[in-house]
Nucleic acid binder design. Structure first.
Lengths: 310, 310
DNA sequence: TAGACGATATTGTCTAGGACAAAGTGGACT
DNA sequence: AGTCCACTTTGTCCTAGACAATATCGTCTA
């Protein structure tokens, strides 16, 4: 049951491998009685491999929205069972055009078949076209892969492989489009702390197929720099992507901060999985909870613009 | 001289922006009398923007091998002067084929001209071919852009734009190559904390042009997962990329940890800017300080393999 | 003169428990 | 059903001392 031959880890290594800060690890030990690391001869913490494994699982469950009190104290087996049950309501995307391709993708991932995966995704892209590839295949597939991971069916490394290949394919698709010149001019990026590129790329693709003028800054641009760049470049819209992993509070803070730094004339469009779970929505920001909303949003913007101009 | 409307930053933000840990920031304050943050009404540290700027510069100098005692206490002007003088010996890439293209790239960046930049990079790629594009243009250009940023000539957002476009172009190049099938089978990734994709992509490109079988996991894969994936997939080599931003200590720790978890038969090749500055080099790891060393390294591996097999 | 060794200085990380703000939860009231 | 307030949970920050890891420098030896 336990993994043998793995060495005990000092707290810095556990922080790196689980993403839980040293402070958090220490305070959990005090409050919940877990983890219970050994100590080396100088009194410093040494975490056995099985506890690190359990912490990694806990960390992932927290990202899914569970609360520490519900998961930190409980034994490993129960955690694994609970990891599966949160995935109710998988129905909506079952009708997507990409659905038959899901199982094949997972099979290729399991065997680390990079060439096969590349061919598979490339075919899907060509068959569906970039627009439908994104909305009907990539978006639901991301969810499938995340679920497969939390059920223990695929490893982290296989999720990484998927992300890498999908990113590759999306960039191929975007790169094949002649640079757009239509309004609005959109500056795309994510705020610091949000390192998921896939959401940003999917949005980029949806904008590019409508021939929108896009400038992507990649991930993690500080709010101050976004504001400066948007003003200097004369962007009409700043587009931000939020994955569900990002912490609500800091995300909203930065969003409001950015809104305050930008002139009224520059709109903010915020998209991604986080948006659908958001309660308080700061004014002056347009929330886009689904990729399908992008085309009508663009149409509306262009309507407004042409009504104002002539 | 100072930028007025910048807000003061809490310690967590400074940690993120400078790469210096909270512990380090606090202990410097105690020992060297710098930084001297303000305090909010709860007694928590608030760093003025100019101190954050200075810390960022200090962090860069430390990465170049200077000691804290020499740089933490000294005023900003002296730091800038000292930052410049470290850049001696820029000669080698002056003869690179990409050199005439550097200035154009910087000009396009300054005007946020995404379409122009894309066209410019695409032309360079087609003209030089992927191999030379990487070694003679992309690699030295990265350094140029980093230096331009540290001299204050371009903004962070412009560096981001560059990174994004270069990444796009490299992926186009790699994607155009029919998947390689030759030995060795290389699994590419970076360790946690290293989020720079460009180095990894450049290495990927250099391997791909030699028709090597590559599986890239993207960035930040924990050592344990790398080891598991490499064994399960039957990789011959694990290729890791280290940018100069990564801290020496944790990087070496993880590297040795990974070495211990992998069987002897799987080699580790470590590349990137960090390697050339490394003193102690753990055994069982092959260090590749320049991209040009990849082709001979591959040739040597294939030599060995064919000598052993028949 | 080069290299090995040991003493000393420097530097980052770890420890402890208390404190408190931010985020989530639940109940009472419009 | 929605808004406000109190309560609980949770992560981050604080202090200052200790010490391991690393760098530097002087000394001895071949």
């Amino acid at each position: 049951m336990t993994v043998p031959d793995l060495p005990d880890s000092p707290i810095s290594v556990v922080e790196r491998e689980t993403g839980l800060s040293k402070d958090t690890l220490r305070v959990w030990e005090r409050r919940y009685g877990f983890p219970v690391p050994l100590r080396d001869r100088h009194g410093e913490r040494l975490y056995p491999a099985d506890q690190v494994l359990r912490l990694r699982l806990i960390s992932r469950l927290l990202d899914r929205g569970l609360r520490p009190r519900q998961v930190v104290g409980v034994p490993l087996e129960e955690l694994i069972a609970r990891a599966g049950e949160g995935d109710a309501a998988p129905a909506p995307q079952a009708r997507a055009a990409g659905a038959p391709l899901f199982e094949t993708t997972l099979r290729l991932l399991r065997s680390y078949d990079e060439a096969g995966l590349r061919a598979h995704l490339s075919l899907a892209l060509q068959r569906l076209g970039l627009q439908r590839f994104v909305t009907e295949f990539a978006a639901p597939m991301n969810v499938q892969v995340g679920d497969a991971w939390s059920r223990g069916e695929i490893a982290i490394s296989q999720e990484h492989l998927y992300t890498e290949q999908m990113q590759h394919q999306l960039r191929q698709g975007i790169g094949a489009i002649y640079p757009g010149t239509n309004a609005p001019s959109v500056m795309l990026t994510t705020l610091p702390g949000e390192e998921h590129q896939l959401g940003l790329l999917m949005a980029h693709a949806c904008l590019a197929v409508e021939s929108t003028r896009c400038v992507s800054l990649g991930v993690q641009t500080p709010a101050w720099d976004i504001a400066q760049a948007a003003r200097q470049h004369g962007a009409d819209v700043v587009g931000l992507s939020f994955s569900e992993a990002l912490r609500h509070k800091s995300a909203l803070d930065m969003l409001q901060d950015l809104r305050a730094r930008l002139p009224e004339s520059i709109e903010i469009w915020a998209g991604g999985a986080l948006c659908s779970r958001l309660r308080c929505r700061p004014p002056g920001v347009r929330f886009v909870s689904r990729l399908e909303q992008i085309p009508p949003l663009l149409a509306e913007y262009r309507e407004r613009a042409s009504a104002a101009a002539p």
